[in-house]
Design a protein around this nucleic acid. Structure first.
Lengths: 222, 222
DNA sequence: GTAATAGTGTCTTTAAGACACTATCCA
DNA sequence: TGGATAGTGTCTTAAAGACACTATTAC
């Protein structure tokens, strides 16, 4: 057996994103401990080798403990590893990005998350700005080719809400007719019984939809 | 400062792929040390916190030391982390995939790499079969939307060779006319002076090309 | 009726696929 | 000349974009 090298620190960091006032926002949390105690940073923590089965288990544990959130969509982004990213020494951050509908945050469950514009989260400790950037790129890239944008909405939504979500994820406006045609062709949504008004003032009621299956990718742009 | 948890083992594993007889192949290496000593596995090794600046540095060091290869295209795939993937304990493998032109392997530099079909690499230790699968999916996915396939060829290549490479990466045949039109529209190649024959028997000489820039993505399928 | 959003129809433009054709070389 | 691959032209098909139009509600 070859000599063992000093083991790096291993953490999990989560870029939790939502939509606030039509723009993407990242959720930050003031750090409990040194280094950077009290400074807003990505939601994260050590991997607990005694209780976490794998990295996803760590993510679930941390999201629940630190943000009071469960059942979110999340997926691994990539890892950031090196000597200089953490003052404690050589470290690995297995980065995830997670999406949460704003309705889940306004509910009582969420802890006091700081919501900052994803495009300008302010100065962040470690290499967290880079991680946020990677998450934004991933979301934008996947937005055009998958249904993940729907994870920023409640389970049931209107076609306009879905289109609006895609528009903020992609950062461009979409044609209503083309959007609906594409969604219909892809056959990923199913209608839900019930009616909905969008604002207080009067107008035509709307069909409600939900995803037929878990978020999935498709071959062509929206 | 919160209590420190037992630190996981951190390794880097590389899915080195090339083309052999028109099919994708993975390069394996017999393991020097326990566990699974002598068993073919992905090229990998511990992160050396004393000498590796970051994970990419570890990849470069390992590729050079264990395969005698330098200057390859490689990129991070994702990490695989958990309690049960390595008998030594909770571990993180930061997985990379790398592409190498077959010509570089046949040269004297390469060590004794085992080349196995990527679609059937045989039984592998740890979760290396899963990592190979992830690499194949990534290559296939990116193949249709990027120029990475060109990394499986020498710097200078013919249009037919490029098309052939795309065909093996994507696992489907492509129309010659459409392929050339697409390549021309994308304007990612530049002509190189010089002539080339493809086989021994006589035929028309061919224009040679090279990538204008580092591998990049485009918005639509090939 | 009007205001407001929901939803459709259709023409245009663009990209991809199919496939036959011509070009250029060597033996 | 024929064999072989290089390279082009053009028609068809499919998807995306533009944009105007109709529908249904509250008031």
């Amino acid at each position: 057996m070859q000599p063992e090298y000093e083991r790096p620190i291993v953490t999990v960091d989560i870029v939790l994103m939502t939509i606030v006032e039509g723009a993407l926002a990242v959720a930050l949390l003031e750090r409990d401990n040194a280094p950077f105690q009290g400074v807003p940073a990505l939601i994260g923590g050590y991997v607990h080798t005694d209780e976490d089965e794998d990295a996803e288990a760590a993510v679930r544990r941390i999201l629940k403990a630190k943000a009071g959130l469960e059942g979110l969509f999340f997926e691994q982004l990539r890892s950031f590893a090196g000597r200089d990213r953490d003052p404690r020494g050589w470290s690995v951050s297995i980065a995830y990005f997670a999406l949460v509908p704003p309705s889940l945050l306004s509910g009582g469950t969420g802890k006091t998350l700081l919501l900052r514009p994803a495009s300008a989260p302010g100065e962040l400790p470690f290499d967290h700005e880079r991680i946020v950037l990677a998450a934004r790129e991933r979301l934008r890239g996947k937005g055009a080719y998958s249904t993940i944008a729907a994870c920023l909405l409640p389970k049931v939504f209107t076609m306009s809400e879905l289109q609006g979500t895609y528009e903020t994820v992609l950062g461009e406006t979409l044609d209503q007719s083309a959007f609906r045609r594409k969604m219909k062709d892809l056959d990923l949504l199913e209608e839900v019984e019930g009616e909905k008004r969008q604002t207080l003032i009067a107008r035509r009621p709307t069909t409600l939809y939900r995803l037929k299956a878990a978020p999935s990718v498709f071959d062509r742009r929206i």
